[in-house]
Design a protein around this nucleic acid. Structure first.
Lengths: 229, 229
DNA sequence: CCTCTCAGGTTGTCTGCGAAGCTGAGGTGT
DNA sequence: ACACCTCAGCTTCGCAGACAACCTGAGAGG
């Protein structure tokens, strides 16, 4: 029961919420000073310590910043996005779609930029995926995702790598569910071996077009399967 | 000078940091209860209100959650990724590269999924971009980004739309800088008019291949310009 | 074995106090 | 006229104490 989250019970939570709303609404622009603690306490009708804790909560969320002797200043008007939560709420098909966008292009970049180290990592991940063929669905999915992560890493774009990592938990859940539901691996426990092998080879050869199209076809196929479930 | 951020001046900040470190280090697993406020105060050598404010900061960051009468519980061991900050730190070329990945595929999806409303929005954004041709670099960039945002929106993937919005601030800065430095618009204040017009038409016709390749070429060109700066 | 009661512990909130620090007005010296 | 200094008034910071509200688990009672 998430009833706790619905009722903004404590005064601190209420004060935090009201202040957050005013900040996001733009009542105080970025860089401007908030009213003093005592003033806020009077206007909100709460004690000073309550205001202080509310401001601390906002500071923890990255919206304000206090400077002793000077005041509390607005540092941002938009709260930090909670992407993990957002990913949990999004449909698996949407997640997979974005993942496909990132990864197809990443594979092309990887084919152009891969270093010997990258190729070694790809081979190792490929081996691991083969070994995981005898394991559980979760183990197989983990190995599969690791291989894909290695491809993304070979694109040598740190932002992209971080973004992909953000997707991994949702991806993992979605793929495991897919395997549980569709029996895709039955009789073919090492599902997708040839495709992935071809993909790694394309990256090794530096054949960007091949890498991109192989991966696009594979991801597209899985996406339609996901949509069918 | 960002010296303020480096020295964890206040006791609350120090307490917050120490608690955060312990949580991320796994001293207390997710779901477990932290020691009581009075105990923490004694352990950390600070007053109870100081501990309370530190806990509020962690709560604001999504690491802990307090339940009156029960205690303070760990809700996560990894802090929320601060993607805006991460984007600010990333190189503009990396940002632009990822943006290109997302947007090229988004344009293809948009060509397949666009509704009459989407097309109306695209036309409106295109008009606005033409009008902004007489304005400042910042205004022109804003109009340009709005058009691209409209294309992404037409792909009808909420996750993708949110992701793109996250990129906008960094994109805006990078593009404005590029215009300031390269004089790209001098003598051609409505730079890229034909390309964008062709792009919108491709989406209107539902020609995914054309939309994708037009946008890829355009973004690639800008990317090489960015790398040259 | 189930239910109720309750003592002890915990967080929530307020108030008062003093310390530390910033800021701008106004004076001072050159 | 300009640069520098001083300082009063504001702000946040931190502590302590008090009490309220609430949760939890142990033990009494059915």
């Amino acid at each position: 029961m998430t009833l706790d989250a619905l009722r903004p019970n404590s005064l601190v939570d209420q004060a935090t919420q009201r202040l957050r709303e005013e900040i996001t609404a733009g009542t105080w622009a970025v860089g401007t000073k908030l009213p003093g603690e005592t003033t806020l306490a009077r206007t909100l009708g709460v004690g000073r310590s309550t205001v202080r804790e509310a401001l601390r909560a906002l500071a923890g969320a990255g919206l304000v910043q206090a400077r002793q002797g000077a005041g509390v200043f607005v540092t941002a008007t938009t709260p930090r996005e909670d992407w993990p939560a957002r990913l949990r709420q999004s449909a698996i098909t949407e997640i997979y779609e974005v993942r496909a966008m990132l990864e197809v292009e990443a594979a092309q970049l990887a084919a152009r930029r891969r270093t010997p180290d990258d190729i070694a990592a790809l081979d190792e991940a490929m081996q691991q995926r083969r070994r995981a063929a005898t394991g559980s669905n979760a183990e197989f999915v983990d190995a599969d995702i690791n291989l894909h992560a290695a491809i993304v890493a070979a694109a040598h774009n740190l932002l992209l790598t971080g973004l992909f990592e953000e997707f991994v938990p949702s991806l993992r859940r979605g793929l495991i569910d897919l395997l549980e539901l569709t029996d895709l691996r039955s009789g073919d426990s090492n599902h997708g071996e040839e495709v992935h092998s071809a993909l790694v080879d394309a990256v090794r050869r530096g054949d960007a077009e091949a890498a991109g199209s192989i991966l696009r076809a594979e991801l597209q196929q899985t996406l339609t399967r996901l949509q069918a479930v």
